[in-house]
Design a protein around this nucleic acid. Structure first.
Lengths: 221, 221
DNA sequence: CAAATTATCAAGCGATCTATTGAATAGCAA
DNA sequence: TTGCTATTCAATAGATCGCTTGATAATTTG
């Protein structure tokens, strides 16, 4: 049998990936990359850190194999490495939410009052009936990088100005980045304030996308 | 909308769980707990660390909600907190293996020559036919804590002495703790050296158990 | 080619993490 | 109560991490 040293090396290598998940800043970057690929500079600006620091964190994520990078002219664009990486990040996040009471409290605090939500299955059924209109309230560049089929892009800031684009006789379903993103909550509150019937989608774009792919795979198999 | 501070708190809370996965020693403890609940003292002995250090690591895991503890007389028995925790650990491990070339190299080094493997589905089919005999080569206390239905417990050390208990006309399938555990590999080599037909099961007890539960859930739904 | 932009590297300081040591505590048994 | 065992706590030194600053490298543009 091989020496115990080799076994330790295994755990050490796995811990590299654990370490990648051990810093709030890195998690924030990962969360942003789950929406759309971005350059170092963009990430630095959005997350409010220095460029050098952002670059370092991205290198840590790269070292763990969670992100890939590609040079584009003078800048470097980082992306989530693959579906596994996304899936792992979402799993970690979900388990944390279930297990750490603090997280839940923090989430409630951040999201404000809870608003009515609609699940994946129900949305699909009601969209098929043409019963609802689905609105993506994220910034438009994230919409461009990928969105739910049939959704209309109305960034949160433009919501009031573009109310006319939404048929008044149909319920509006809003979605954004995911369960911790406040955009959809806020959108629903504003829509209701404007006299519309509105709910938020329970999940965000990354979760939707992943669930859709899993379904495609199982159909293929 | 709530302040950005609350959002940071979210990532910080998730990072607590990431940190739990950031130390090789802790991962080793987690891996052991995936086999069977154990007391601090047992874990310290098996993993070759001091008791105090083991206790500290276990407290870190406890703080992240990955393990639970229960006093038993004078000692404290730790267990994996739940299925989610197991599932997350296995996911992290698998993603690491896929993405870090180092891990793969280290694994090959540790496990020695590759031996023929059999998958879950095939095993189930052939056990139904009574075609194979399934052997659990882990230490017997781990077998007692949980094992694949229909398996026979023969710890690796006792393998040669108890060869007579295995029908010579049936193929033997050996399994152990999981893909990084060398016991099943070693068992197959020894069985083949003794003239028996033998393969190893691709997965170990924790993976098998988790897959079985997922299946039960989907049947129930 | 030089200037401008973007990203990475290198060094350093403070904060955090890890393992060790020895003391303190909880339960059990005589 | 007094021992005895298993575990946790507390203090510490050394290693690692995280962020900052300023220099360096890679591309594009004038």
């Amino acid at each position: 049998m091989a020496s115990a040293k080799s076994k330790d090396a295994l755990f050490e290598a796995i811990a590299v990936m654990g370490k990648a998940f051990a810093s709030p800043r890195r998690l924030e970057l990962l969360d942003l990359l789950a929406q759309a690929p971005r350059t170092v500079d963009e990430l630095a600006r959005v997350s409010g850190q220095s460029t050098a620091n952002t670059s370092q964190h991205l290198q840590a994520l790269h070292g763990a194999g969670l992100v890939t990078r590609a040079r584009e002219g003078t800048s470097v664009r980082y992306s989530l490495a693959n579906e596994q990486a996304l899936s792992l990040w979402l799993a970690l996040r979900d388990v944390s939410v279930n297990q750490l009471a603090e997280v839940e409290r923090a989430a409630r605090d951040y999201l404000g009052e809870e608003v009515d939500a609609i699940g994946r299955e129900e949305l699909i059924a009601r969209m098929r009936k043409g019963d609802v209109v689905l609105v993506d309230v994220r910034p438009s560049d994230e919409f461009d990088a990928g969105h739910i089929k049939g959704a209309k892009s109305i960034p949160l800031q433009e919501l009031e100005d573009r109310l006319a684009e939404l048929p008044a006789d149909r319920e509006v379903v809003a979605y954004c980045r995911g369960p911790f993103c406040a955009y959809a909550h806020e959108a629903v509150r504003r829509l209701q304030a404007a006299g519309r019937e509105a709910r938020r989608l329970e999940e965000g774009w990354p979760e939707w996308r992943l669930a859709g792919r899993a379904k495609k795979r199982s159909r293929a198999a």
